[in-house]
Design a protein around this nucleic acid. Structure first.
Lengths: 197, 197
DNA sequence: CAATTATGCAACATGGTGTTGAATATCTTT
DNA sequence: AAAGATATTCAACACCATGTTGCATAATTG
């Protein structure tokens, strides 16, 4: 029911064509005509599969997202935040070629946010347990800070070649989130200087 | 040399028209024709001033950026990071109507990053002094984390009506950056639990 | 008021869009 | 291997935004 080599081939070359164009320009400036030229596919065929380049990108992202989500579901429930972040980074590395495009200059900034939202429940629960007196409003603010900060770090990691192990990145994010600079410095007295009102 | 009321009027209505359209759609889907219709300006006149909608947006952003930068230059050199962040937030609030559009769903995510980059030198210097043994690579990672995290918080602040005082936002960012959750919790023992390997 | 300059207007070629119907190629199934 | 089903190609189409132009008209400045 999902077979037919022609369809699989067509979709594959269209995806590749879009991704290769996204290394050169933002999707804003990529036309259906260009994608089809690069894929050597007739333009009418493109429209038989996708509405426009954005739709095509969305399909690519959805597949990638599901792949990442599945690799986390494996270790579900037992998942500490650290564990989930490690799984996410591992899965990103496994999809390295694709992520390098999606996270790149002309990629889609929103995608990584969507991925990190997988860990939203665990994050909020963790913050809540640590800062029980914080209001909902403040918790949201913390989540925004940490999730966007984490996204930036992961993006940098991917674009610089993913040399560090996923565990290292997850550990860094946990450390910087939990204790902040004070812990990284390993010098509570000194860092405390900056904390006095 | 910069006078002529006609020019000033034309540019003003074109800017307003684009901004009002950006509340409805991403600039991607905004045409020159639409902008001119809403501004009641001839399309040829648009091209006499701007190359395309992106150019128009860039001009708007540049003016806003300069306005923010100028309001900081006042307290320059003596600027602690906290002071700079406060100035940035104050200036953003003064340009509230405009910022609400630029930071909104269909706005320009990159603009706030550009603004926060004003504080990049001070940030890096501060991290460096606190964590003297950190490598350049790790410092970059921290800066990415904190600047993107800060951007997310400020964006949330703007979009929810800028009720808190700029000083509060700056203080929050400093607190969360410096001591992380451990400090906010005011409970080093408990938070330390999460830091043990 | 006079000279300058900006805007409005209408028309044009260009290029991408999205769709269509018919011809052709490829795949799946028996 | 042949037949039926289905995907792709091809050519053509109307449509619309683009960017530009020459000229008429309106507004501004000094």
């Amino acid at each position: 029911m999902k077979s037919d080599r022609r369809v699989r081939y067509t979709r594959m070359v269209l995806k590749q064509a879009l991704l290769s164009l996204m290394l050169e320009r933002p999707i804003t400036r990529i036309t259906v005509t260009e994608i089809c030229e690069r894929a050597e596919v007739n333009r009418a065929t493109f429209y038989a599969h996708y509405a426009d380049p954005y739709d095509l990108l969305a399909r690519i992202e959805n597949e990638l997202f599901e792949s990442i989500r599945r690799s986390i579901a494996g270790g579900l429930s037992s998942g500490s935040l650290r564990r989930i972040l490690t799984d996410i980074c591992s899965s990103i590395r496994e999809n390295g070629a694709l992520c390098r495009v999606i996270f790149s200059e002309y990629g889609d900034r929103e995608f990584l946010e969507r991925v990190l939202n997988i860990a939203r429940v665990e994050s909020m629960a963790l913050w809540r347990s640590i800062v029980p007196h914080a209001g909902e409003r403040e918790l949201e603010r913390m989540y925004a800070f940490f999730s966007q900060g984490s996204a930036a770090v992961i993006r940098g990691w991917v674009l610089s070649g993913m040399q560090d192990a996923p565990e290292e990145i997850a550990a860094f994010l946990e450390r910087i989130s939990m204790g902040g600079l004070a812990q990284i410095a390993g010098n509570r007295e000194k860092s405390a200087e900056f904390l006095v009102k």
